[in-house]
Design a protein around this nucleic acid. Structure first.
Lengths: 149, 149
DNA sequence: ATACCTGCAAAAACTTTGCAATTCG
DNA sequence: CGAATTGCAAAGTTTTTGCAGGTAT
């Protein structure tokens, strides 16, 4: 999976324009920091990455910007069993792999789980299902090697 | 889905004995508080529930006990996009429904998603897959009604 | 008896908010 | 120029840790 930050930055311009919001250096830098990585970083990890380019950026800006970009549909908060929220810059449909040992989270391409697209919620009752997410839990490559001793 | 707390408490006795750990009132009460509900409470919610029976219990004990019970395999931390960790007392295989509006999380029985049991991770590489979890995202019954205005 | 647990209090980690100064369009 | 954003500092949440005293086996 290769991601071109330029396409994401173009989307940022477009959606900010539609919403009447300014495109700031912080928004560009934070979005770029997120989409150029394939793990699912916490706000703190993004803060560290962004601080290398914008040394005066504050954590408050990182948190607020992540909310804004999420409202604009440019990124998503993802479910994680850990004690800090994780973010995903990949807005295309895909699955996740969660390592139970180190807590890391990786993207899985759609075709890694044949049949997942056919899942349908039977007997939804009054619930409205919008999306079905599949995540595989186990050991990531590094932790599988470590466990082999 | 009906759960008998007695069976869970018996498991607690057994696993503590195997591990050489004492069975305390706090461990019994916290486990019982969790397994008798079908939402996926935070540590704070469990603290409130437990405090009704053990008024002097501390949050630190709730956090530590949840870790211990998780190590014993009596409950699980579940993935949630919110900013506090959630716990699940249902250790049998099942799926989850996550409401995008109110953040609530409900159990779904296995047969709510026919085909989910057949999913297999293709091309796992060095990863070791242990379990495949499916979660449906959308609006819970209460929020679907609210949205209808 | 002894190893483990608990409560308390303090600290650490994570996230949000108010406000004055700045930046974008 | 005006509206929205940013950094700072402070406050609010959530989670962890050290330690003295208590409890289960």
């Amino acid at each position: 999976v290769i991601r071109d930050p330029r396409a994401h930055l173009a989307e940022l311009e477009k959606r900010c324009a539609s919403a009447g919001l300014p495109v700031t250096a912080q928004r560009r830098t934070i979005l770029q920091a997120l989409v150029t990585r394939h793990d699912h970083p916490t706000a703190e990890q993004l803060y560290s990455a962004v601080a290398e380019r914008l040394p005066d950026v504050s954590r408050a800006t990182v948190y607020r910007t992540l909310d804004t970009l999420s409202d604009l549909g440019l990124l998503r908060r993802v479910a994680h069993p850990g004690s800090a929220v994780r973010f995903d810059g990949n807005t295309a449909p895909h699955h996740h792999f969660l390592c139970e040992r180190c807590g890391s989270m990786e993207d899985l391409p759609l075709d890694a789980l044949p049949g997942a697209a056919d899942l349908v919620l039977a007997d939804a009752g009054e619930r409205v299902a919008r999306e079905i997410a599949v995540s595989v839990h186990g050991r990531c490559a590094a932790c599988a090697r470590a466990a082999a001793d």
